[in-house]
Nucleic acid binder design. Structure first.
Lengths: 110, 110
DNA sequence: CTAACGTACAACCACATGGTTGTAGATTCC
DNA sequence: GGAATCTACAACCATGTGGTTGTACGTTAG
């Protein structure tokens, strides 16, 4: 297992998700693959802007691209998504731990 | 239920999580509340920088502050965290849907 | 072959972000 | 009361981000 720079990974993933356009692209390409220009037609911005959003998602490993003729098909990668979900689960577990401790204290006080 | 500006909420939450220092602060204050200056002593940066990180987490509703004398105690708020986890679950559900569709297609082809 | 299409990338711009220092207001300690 | 502590916030700076346009290159269609 790669231990190195898991921090930067999380940085990239959360940053990639911190933009409504990118989240929308992600939901679409998870449903089914789409070419970059198909995606670009969906948003009120230039092709270049959408292409850059796709690059950000790609760097975060949230999507992958595969060539099909002159098109580049973008697909959602669920692995990174799962890693983030697990991370958030970790946060929540910590919280539950705290909640349990509080309950313990309240019990003792009664 | 508030329907308005759930998008901006997600923006704020993901952006808040897209920084290693802020994620570290979050894990600590979820375990147990800490004052801002206690937090500030933990990181190799100025008090003001840490205070600004706390503000970012607060705007994302990931932490809340309560006064205790001259200190401000920062605590982790789990509600927003859960909302994000649910959002990511939503993404994963979409993916599973796609996986099921692919299986269906493969079955038909055989 | 040539034209149109799909993609990638550089250069540029306005604005946000993450850091700094400095100042000022509450609150507590002695 | 006066000093120390904790917090908040403004001003500033370097860098990053999200958008633009323009250009170049490979692939497909006619």
């Amino acid at each position: 297992m790669v231990v190195d720079s898991g921090v930067a990974d999380a940085d990239r993933v959360f940053h990639a998700l911190a933009d409504a356009t990118r989240r929308d692209i992600l939901t679409r390409v998870i449903r089914s693959g789409m070419s970059v220009s198909e995606l670009a037609r969906l948003y009120p911005m230039s092709f270049a802007a959408v292409q850059k959003h796709v690059v950000v998602l790609e760097r975060a490993a949230l999507v992958s691209k595969t060539r099909r003729g002159r098109e580049q098909i973008v697909r959602g990668e669920v692995e990174a998504l799962r890693r983030v979900a697990r991370l958030l689960d970790g946060y929540e577990r910590l919280w539950r731990h705290r909640a349990a401790a509080i309950e313990e204290i309240l019990k003792e006080e009664q």
